[in-house]
Simulated scan of single mutants.
Amino acid sequence: MKHLWQPPKLRVSEEDGEERHATWLELFYDLVFVVVIAQLAHHLKDHPSAAGFTEFAVVFVPVWWSWVGTTFYATRFDTDDTLHRVLTVIQMSAIAAMAVNIHKGMDYASVGFALSYVIVRGILVIQYLVAGQHIAIARPLTNRYAKGFGLAAAIWALSTLVSIPWRFGMWCLGMVIDFATPIGAGKLHGQIAPHASHLPERFGLFTLIVLGESIVAVVGGLAAQKWEFAAIVAGVLGLCIAASVWWVYFDNLDGSAIRSARLGQVGTYQIWLYAHLPLVASLTAMGVGMQKLLSGNMSAALPDENRWLLCLALAICYAALGFIHLSTDAGSLRRSQTQALERFSAAILLSLIAWLGWNLSPLTLMFLLAAICISQVVLAHFGMHHIKPEEIGE
Rank of each mutant, 00 (worst) to 15 (best):
G289S: 10
G289C: 09
M290P: 06
M290N: 06
Q291Y: 07
K292I: 14
K292N: 12
K292F: 05
L294H: 03
L294Y: 07
M298C: 02
M298N: 00
S299I: 09
S299N: 12
S299P: 01
A300G: 02
A301Y: 02
L302I: 13
L302Y: 02
L302H: 01
P303H: 06
R307G: 00
R307F: 00
L309Q: 06
L309R: 01
L310P: 05
L310A: 10
C311R: 08
L312R: 11
L312Q: 10
A313T: 06
L314I: 06
A315K: 00
I316T: 12
I316V: 15
C317L: 08
Y318P: 02
A320E: 06
G322E: 03
G322K: 01
I324V: 14
I324P: 01
I324Y: 00
H325E: 09
H325N: 13
L326M: 12
S327I: 07
S327K: 06
A330G: 05
A330C: 13
G331R: 08
L333G: 15
L333R: 15
R334H: 14
R335D: 12
R335P: 02
R335N: 13
R335S: 13
S336F: 00
S336L: 03
Q337M: 13
Q337T: 11
T338R: 15
T338H: 15
Q339E: 14
A340V: 04
L341G: 03
E342G: 11
R343K: 15
F344Q: 02
F344I: 00
S345D: 11
A347F: 01
A347Q: 05
I348G: 03
I348S: 03
L349N: 08
L350D: 01
L350T: 04
S351G: 14
L352R: 10
L352D: 09
W355I: 15
G357H: 00
G357I: 00
W358G: 13
N359V: 11
P362W: 00
L363A: 07
T364F: 10
L365K: 02
M366W: 06
F367T: 09
F367W: 15
L368R: 05
L368K: 08
L369N: 03
L369R: 04
A370F: 05
A370W: 07
I372Q: 03
I372A: 02
I372W: 04
I372V: 15
C373N: 14
C373P: 05
I374M: 13
I374N: 07
S375L: 15
S375H: 13
V377D: 10
V377L: 06
V378W: 12
V378P: 05
L379E: 01
L379Q: 06
A380E: 12
H381N: 12
G383S: 15
M384P: 07
H385S: 14
I387A: 09
I387H: 09
I387Y: 07
I387F: 08
